[in-house]
Nucleic acid binder design. Structure first.
Lengths: 345, 345
DNA sequence: ATGAAAGCGCTAACAG
DNA sequence: CTGTTAGCGCTTTCAT
């Protein structure tokens, strides 16, 4: 900056003004400075700027699993909302592993981010509490704040599970299988609770539910679950998966083994990712407002950051929606190619 | 830091030493300091640290499209390699849009990153040149450096296209369709060149190739391409797609319209993402060493960063591999469920 | 409208 | 082994 100032024949503060408040500077000087910057290839040192100003225009976003298309849309929602107001996003992937999450959060803390959006493995982890104690706004994403002292945006997973199960029960199925993910994830367990609630409502005893647990929410894990499903006796007729990746894996294995979907087995996924509508048998799924989830969370964070003191914490719970396609219902078995509903950007 | 020092009854430099070179400090003092840090909830200000030290432990990674599973594995390769040596990664998504790429790169420059790994929209863009001029190491990812003055890691896309086309020609197909992506992307055009090369080798005239261009490499775009394919006369019998997402979209539309794959149309994708093996009809695809791509690029960058002066730029070109599955070959049409080959991490 | 100068919080000589 | 101290590059009063 000193070099630029010298080369332009002005003082450093004029250079600084050109960068930060161009209208304070005479246009003659502004031009000289801009020219010198271009000539010298000057790039502002953000560390120094931050140090001086005390805060950043950066927020951190920690997602549970970047390989899950669900989060890709959440990320989009966050990024577009924040970049519109000039904030940049540092994206981190905890990969569902608490130690990674901890180091992500720690790194973000040191970067002096304005705030953190996080889909936590465990919303009660000490590192999140510590961050909040330091006064860094934290908004929980796809997770409900325990108290009222924190913002959160989530989707009603119990309802989602109930929608899926009610649908299958209405089709006359009497035994259900729930292909679950890591029980650490409350999303996964709440969806199961929803399934049980629907069964209770329908007067179906809880022991009619078989749970198959997977160690991760991935396509590969779904394939493994599919294999295990094949071994069950009596053969289940209806399967709900904790997410679409699992469901697609299950579907693939059914397909490969000549088990007809929905003829022999009805299948319901969760998230309604793009592939769900496009798989061999279009997948019935519980749609979540993914983009909006990120968008709303980002706006909440902005409000907390800008609205100095004025901010009231809010816990927003969004509503999922069942999208019925061929995989669960003989009525849809003639493919109507209803992909239309999955449009998102 | 001053507070910590006071509270621990030592000087700030001792606190600094505890943080940076714990072995310089007597264990009595170390304990006192650590205790004070915990008590006060002190978090080191990274901006100040950076400013003082002059460099970061951070590198930037800019990918073309985070929604593409191909890049997810590349990201993993980069992150695991770098985090192993204590570097953190700032992940950016250019989304194939040059202006976004420019602002990503600019942001990384201001963050004083140690280096940048980028799968560029256009490897020759001015902002990349500017970065390199400033002395920031830049490694091209999935893109070949034009000269010898820069590191790059890419996969031979011409060869990949040739493998795909040769395979189909060997099956006796005489007309090919190439479902292309944005012509801006050299990967896409080079794969087409490979297809043409294979045709030339086989003595098939170039006008037997029909090109369908898509505006993006996505599942949705593949569906659109599928619709257009259905309208072609004569009906093509063999289709090569610029990537797997396109191919899965095409496959979905074929399926929905009762066109048998591979019976009526043979289909080949590109990337061999996990879904490829797992789709309704397992997809023949050209496998790229995705994880290794990221890994090798990260190592090249580390060498350039650490190996002060000693570093010799390298342009590494990796070799793709054709994975034949049911979608292209009647011989495989009885599903062998050969998912095994898609194992990665 | 412009310039001089005081730090932001930290690290790394250097001296003890 | 510990403390003192001089900046790192920038923004921002405060004078002019």
């Amino acid at each position: 900056m000193k070099d630029v100032a010298r080369s332009a024949g002005v003082s450093v503060s004029t250079v600084s003004n050109v960068l930060n408040r161009p209208d304070y500077v005479s246009s003659a000087n502004r031009l000289k400075v801009l020219d010198a910057i271009a000539r010298l290839g000057y790039v502002r040192n953000n560390a120094a700027r931050q140090l001086r100003v005390g805060r950043t225009r950066t927020v951190g976003l920690v997602v549970l699993n970047i390989a899950n298309p669900f989060f890709i849309d959440v990320i989009r929602g966050v990024e577009e909302t924040l970049s519109r107001v000039g904030h940049s996003v540092i994206l981190c992937n905890s990969d569902g592993r608490p130690p990674r999450e901890e180091s992500n959060v720690e790194m973000l803390g040191e970067q002096q981010v304005q705030g953190v959006l996080i889909s936590p493995v465990d919303p009660g982890s000490p590192w999140l509490a510590k961050l909040a104690d330091r006064g860094v706004p934290v908004v929980l994403l796809d997770s409900r704040a325990a108290g009222t002292e924190q913002c959160s945006v989530s989707v009603d997973d119990v309802l989602g599970g109930r929608l899926a199960a009610s649908h299958l029960l209405e089709q006359g199925h009497e035994r259900l299988v729930y292909v679950s993910g890591p029980p650490l994830l409350h999303q996964v367990t709440e969806r199961r609770e929803g399934v049980l609630a629907a069964m209770a409502e329908a007067g179906v005893p809880a022991d009619r539910l078989t749970v198959i647990e997977c160690t991760e929410l991935s396509f590969g894990a779904g394939c493994d679950a599919g294999e295990r499903l094949l071994g069950l006796r009596p053969r289940p007729t209806a399967v709900i998966c904790a997410n679409d990746l699992l469901a697609l894996g299950v579907l693939q294995v059914m397909f490969a083994n000549g088990v007809s979907v929905p003829g022999d087995v009805a299948l319901v996924g969760y998230d309604d990712i793009d592939f769900a509508a496009g798989s061999a048998v279009p997948l019935t799924s519980v749609r979540q407002p993914r983009y909006e989830l990120g968008e709303v969370a980002a706006k909440l964070l902005l409000d907390e950051v800008d609205g100095a003191g004025e901010h009231a914490h809010r816990q927003i719970v969004m509503t999922p929606e069942l999208v019925v396609r061929a995989s669960s219902s003989s009525a849809h078995a003639t493919w109507s190619r209803s992909r239309s509903s999955s449009k998102r950007r």
